[in-house]
Nucleic acid binder design. Sequence first.
DNA 1: CCAATTAAACAACAGTGTTGCCAAATTATC
DNA 2: GATAATTTGGCAACACTGTTGTTTAATTGG
Lengths: 353, 353
Amino acid sequence: MSETGVNLRGVRQHNRALLLTHILRAGGLSRVELAERTGLTQQAVSKIVPELVALGLLDEERQPASGVGKPRTLLRIRAHARHAIGARLDRDEFHVLRTDLTGAVEASIGGPLPLGFTPEQAVTAIADATRQLAVGAEGVLGLGVGAVGPLDHDAGIVRGATNMPGWHDIPLRDLLAERTGLPVTLDKNTNTAAFARNWPHADNTATAVVLVGTGIGVGLLIDGRLYRGPRTNAGEFGHTTLAFDGPRCGCGRRGCVEVLHNTAADTETAAGLLGIGLADLVQVLDLERIVLAGRAVRAAPEVYRDTVLARLGELLPLPRWQRIEVEVDGLGEKIVSRGAAAEVLSKFFVDPR
Amino acid sequence: MSETGVNLRGVRQHNRALLLTHILRAGGLSRVELAERTGLTQQAVSKIVPELVALGLLDEERQPASGVGKPRTLLRIRAHARHAIGARLDRDEFHVLRTDLTGAVEASIGGPLPLGFTPEQAVTAIADATRQLAVGAEGVLGLGVGAVGPLDHDAGIVRGATNMPGWHDIPLRDLLAERTGLPVTLDKNTNTAAFARNWPHADNTATAVVLVGTGIGVGLLIDGRLYRGPRTNAGEFGHTTLAFDGPRCGCGRRGCVEVLHNTAADTETAAGLLGIGLADLVQVLDLERIVLAGRAVRAAPEVYRDTVLARLGELLPLPRWQRIEVEVDGLGEKIVSRGAAAEVLSKFFVDPR
DNA sequence: CCAATTAAACAACAGTGTTGCCAAATTATC
DNA sequence: GATAATTTGGCAACACTGTTGTTTAATTGG
């Protein structure tokens, strides 16, 4: 239960956002279908729709008749009414893209960053690309950034990634907001990657999106939404202990998933070790799906998928009440930046006025 | 965002439940304070309160004047308007208690169960105790049961605990409902234990309640509520791998927390191994608090608390953005049954009509 | 006793979704 | 081609919600 009282304005805002989201997810719906899906009456829907049309967010589209009676009028999101920018900041490169209001990618810019780049260099690269992408696009809602953690999502501060000297408590969100003039959202790359999988097509499948790059992290989709944790540092999976008397890791501990994975003799062994760690995660969170992504996975997708699946099969009791899907993400290198843009869009959909 | 539309009935129900919950948590509130805390106007509160009084759920209590102006009228929950029964079913004993509407424990009954007891024996023991406890208590809302997992909370079925032959897919919820005539809720003991910590005084601190008995499990309090997982099997923490080439565990895997803990040379070593596993959990879920409970912890509370805390201190980077509290639960052996009763009560508070 | 102050209720109101009814658009049938 | 049947979508009246403005009740301080 939410902690605050609900008034009538809140009801209308909720239902307005609800209709918009349903139309987006379905790619287009009639008033009748909206009423069916939301549980509202057709009349309630008919009172809210004109508001959204007046805001320029919906297009009405007459449908050819397909049966008896007046044909339904399709309502679609006006995709070009608004836009969002999403960025990925990695240890050696960056990537920025623009989406329309539905989250479809329209254009992108990316490139390498010099070894040991400074915050200033990163801000310049992302801000320049943002400016280029924003040209001619009306209604740019904001800039979302997915960066390597740990970082503070709420405060918009990069705490300092390992192997990136000079990056300690950098207020990246505010720096970028100042340079671009846009509202900026900062989040861990694992979180934006998970968000990309969950927006706009949210389902309630408990999912871990595993990003395997220089580090290993997970984005957690729980109860139909992204779980960031109270200090927005959830998903630090790379330093889970698999062998408490194993080799030293860069984090100071022993036998972490990350050090075992990165020093493994071959890809299959590496993927198998990852699978052991994931089995623990599945059991603790009752996960239903593992999505593998990141550079290392893209280099050998089948090996990762098959090996992880096989290892989970060995380690989990796996009766009918504990099934697990393993898949390789299909968004490729865009997953992080696309998800960052999606975070911007999702805020708009909550209150489009 | 919820997936369904909100209508006016829903608004009133939400606000009604909200007022009741605030009064419960504070132990008593005036209309003015309710308005402040909920964000509703005083008038809205004044329209809802008489409903709750008419339902017999609130008492009005004139307050002595403490300053200028008309003194506030205190509103309290009528503790004896309703009651709940909570039960714990363990591998060798059971425990049943009765609470009033505020969750205060009024009476309890418990005792041993024979080695390898059958479902029938368990049902009889719990149903008999329930009958005794319900005598004279008006408005018994239901029976909550906390049992060893794995089980299916939604279907009310015990899947079959290790070391308990004859317990395979037992519809314990329905069996108890038939025998007692009460609505029954079945949940894992770790979940009801966590629930006991979170109701009625919910806070948003991300917490794991660790139950250390013959097995080891956790109840997860995330975003202010209990996380059960999609198949209600979250919290299977005992079989997390700490040493993937370690000794065999009863679950078929190697080097689980549980087997290492249970075969450790002494309590301190055992607690230290538990601490390693908990460090992983803290990092993945960004936990802020660990609550230790269960028979083993009650036998040596200081050892567990200090050892786990020390181990977390070693293993976590622990800058200011990753603090962790470790405490031993104070509810003792009642934690599981008290939480089971709380689950019953919490449902009533959501819709008290 | 009276003014000031605070709590709570009363009355009128604006906004919400719902119900009942009707016009418009199309297909199926005669 | 005319007519009935069916479905969509809008209009009007309605019941219910929380809000605003005002009044009444209860208490303190002078």
